[in-house]
Design a binder for these strands. Structure first.
Lengths: 137, 137
DNA sequence: CAGAATCCTTCACGATACTG
DNA sequence: CAGTATCGTGAAGGATTCTG
């Protein structure tokens, strides 16, 4: 529309930009990876030789509900990070393993997990200091 | 109690174990780090020379509400990951920067963010393939 | 400028029950 | 065994208003 004012055009551009940021695929993907269960599932698969069965994952992660486990596995499968293999025996057997793409990611997530374990004490100390200072006020 | 059945004992053990896992400090810390806003705030601070003001962060992250920004900064400060400096001028000026502990973490989170940007296309392809297969059923 | 406080909605998640 | 379907709730998070 040639009848659009400069202000209108600017407004539209700003709106489109905001929408773009909110729906920015990269941000969405980052949000996906920034998920407690994603970290744990990928870590579990990475720290295990060969594929793992659904129930193995449930046991290893312990604390996950089957709903969240299934949901997480589905999105990871859809994103090409884990591979799902069904063996139509009786009873059914389903195995999960990391894809190449998943393995390229697992190292990074494991590093974060290791950091959490390594620096737990320092964080705990920082919290004590912080809380003490707040309480003294 | 010797009168406890095997099922009861198993139930009790499971309950205690779950409680332990839920309150496991390391898992809690991992859950903290596995937060969308934490990734973005730490990345923003890491990708910038020197400290950043509150409003700078709000602008750079774009999409964060001030509530979440404040909340995230507070917990990161409490955990000793960012340092908060107040300059009592008029108007007030508040600067945030990573601590040494924060810098030891930022590299890992940036790596995850970079991974998301680098492999966005592959993930998008995987999704298309997955959805196409599902639709064909 | 840098928050604190409040309200209100949405939805993520857990518990439960059922199926091939 | 490996899920799917449904329901209820608690909490996360956005919008808004007020303050030092």
């Amino acid at each position: 529309m040639a009848t659009m004012t400069a202000a209108q055009r600017r407004e539209q551009a700003r709106f489109a930009y905001d929408a773009f940021l909110r729906e920015c695929p990269t941000n969405q993907l980052l949000a996906r990876l920034s998920d407690k269960w994603v970290s744990l599932v990928v870590s579990a698969l990475a720290g295990h030789e060969g594929p793992m069965r659904y129930s193995d994952l449930g046991r290893k992660i312990a604390g996950v509900s089957q709903k969240m486990l299934t949901q997480t596995l589905r999105t990871l499968e859809r994103d090409g990070i884990v591979a799902r293999t069904v063996t139509p025996s009786v009873p059914v057997r389903v195995d999960y393993e990391l894809t190449d793409l998943g393995r390229s990611l697992s190292g990074l997530l494991l590093a974060v997990k290791d950091w959490a374990e390594t620096h737990m004490d320092e964080v705990a100390d920082a919290r004590e200091t912080y809380d003490a200072a707040a309480g003294a006020a």
